[in-house]
Design a protein around this nucleic acid. Sequence first.
DNA 1: GGTTAGGGTTCG
Length: 660
Amino acid sequence: MYVWPSTVSLRASVPRKITSPASTEVTKAVKVVKYTYVPLSDLKPGVVVNVYAVVTFFKQPFRTKGTDYCSTLKITDQSNQKVGCTIFCDKLEEHPKIFKMGDIIRLHRVKTQLFNGAISLLTSHGFSVVTFDGMVGSPVVPRTSSESFKFGEEDCQVVEALRTWAANQSLVPAQPCVPLSAVQPKTYFDLTCQLLAKAPVDSSCTLLKVWDGSKCPHPLLDVFVEPNTLEGCPTLSKDMANLTANVLVYDNHVEVARQFKPGSYLRIYNLHAVPGASRLPSNDSGQSDQTGHLGFHLHGGTSYGRGLRVLPEDSPDILDLKKILETFSESDINDSSMFEVWSTPPESFGVLTFFTVMTCDHTVEQVSLAEVKSRSPPQVFHVQVQLKSYQPQRLYQSLKLFCHKCKTIRDVPDDVTVEGLFSEAQKDVGPCNNGYWTLVLPLPREPPSESPSQTLTLLMSSQLMGNGKAQELIFLMGTCRIASAYSNIVPVTSPQGTMTPLDLSAPFLFRGTKRYYGCKQCSQLKVGESLGEGVEVWDEKSVADALGVQLLQYGLLMKLELQDGTGFLEALLWRDAESFFHVSAEDAAADQEAQDRVQETMDRLCPPGSSTAERPWMDLCLSAYTVEENGQRRACYQICHTGTRGTNPHTHPHATPRDT
DNA sequence: GGTTAGGGTTCG
């Protein structure tokens, strides 16, 4: 509930509710007004309304030919209606403080208008605006210059509802924010950075020297200006370390840039990465050759939201940036021994260290994800990306069993399922008679108090006993916990008095802490026949051979959603997953330490609750191929020839294997 | 009090 003193404004602010003349009679007392917000799909032309919405496009305020600055927006809400919105206001500080697409906006007293057959919104008298960060879970802090704005619990709820809704809509097509370490030449991107220094170049161009703490893999263009024209102090060492980006700001943006003070934090929208800009002002012939070096242009005009603004120091993205910048001290940067490290591209350092290394030897050019998607498979790509998300979140679900013969993949059954299979098999346990097998004994149960009806039977191969190898392979009927004295244990049952391996849903073999599975489709069981002649070593392969089991191989399967500022791409990690994590899938199935290593890797790539800026960048080799599903062909991507690096062995204290 | 602009890459 809000206090509003004017009945005239009240009518405007509550257009659909106030109809009774009685409500306008209370003019002496202060009015209690609840703002009504109209869904964008319900807008009719020619009325003044209040709306709440998500910003899907915006231009920073720019000077018009009239007296005002203009902000151009596109907004939407749960009604899914997209509405254009034009804000005229002569004071810059009264324009909406929009930092990125997805921000939430509250507009009071905007006028609906029919333009080109669609409803648009225009500022009207008494207009006011408040904006909010759009990220789900971030604090609901209103951004406004107004001191008299009204904001309460209900507003919080509306903001949170819009955030939640927007999060599932993919309203923002691609993440336009890219650090210098991931800039692709010839692309347009948004840069969040700190201003180191600036210098006027001419009446329509200003130079901004900025950095974001990340090292660009491409050499950066240096723009020389007379030292006395330079405001602020860029350190030469940052230039030498390829940390300083030179941004040339043109035309209408010069006026905006004039207000900036060195040290402040900026976001530059639709910045153009231009390689080999050789004809630059004041780049005299004494300069070293900078052909191919990357310069940055903020072209004139406002297309694609081109513009720039100062971001407040307490905004989440700036807090992230500050953390990164704080990892550099001048002494580090001036330390000449560090230069050698830095001059070895594409290595980086600090928070933005590249997390992976490619082991392939093909020399394909690095491309953006947008480009990957535009080309048709089969093809190999090199990309520089961050991890957006991954599946499965429960890493044990990424363990799979793979049959080399029929190429099928199945899940590893969990302990409960395996237990169920054994209980079921136990029902068929009975005396069995077979010339090949020697009934050694019904084993005593541990603990002995367990039901006597559950018998446990140990069988050994007569043939192996003859060879003195009886202990190497035993057959076990019933369930138990058994000492590791036996290296290969095959669980069996005896439905019609014939010893038979269990259904192949269950492990057909236990070896130490490891379990092995067979393919139901491809195995042709032959227990009862003689065991393989001439087998020297009894391991999972020879046991499988002897029993006619098609051995399944363990593998790790994950789906990684990658991002690089030009788009998103889902890629599988399967064929080379083991070398990516530096673990064997078979170990991961049995060994806690190996499982932890996979988990730690994922936690470092995608720290829980982390923002994009905190996630490390990866160099990946991607293989693109085509799969056919239900008659539909689609491109599929797999990460190959890539391994994580920099894993500190000290972070992996020896762990005890999982109890089996 | 009315006007401005009404998204969709510069050309340095």
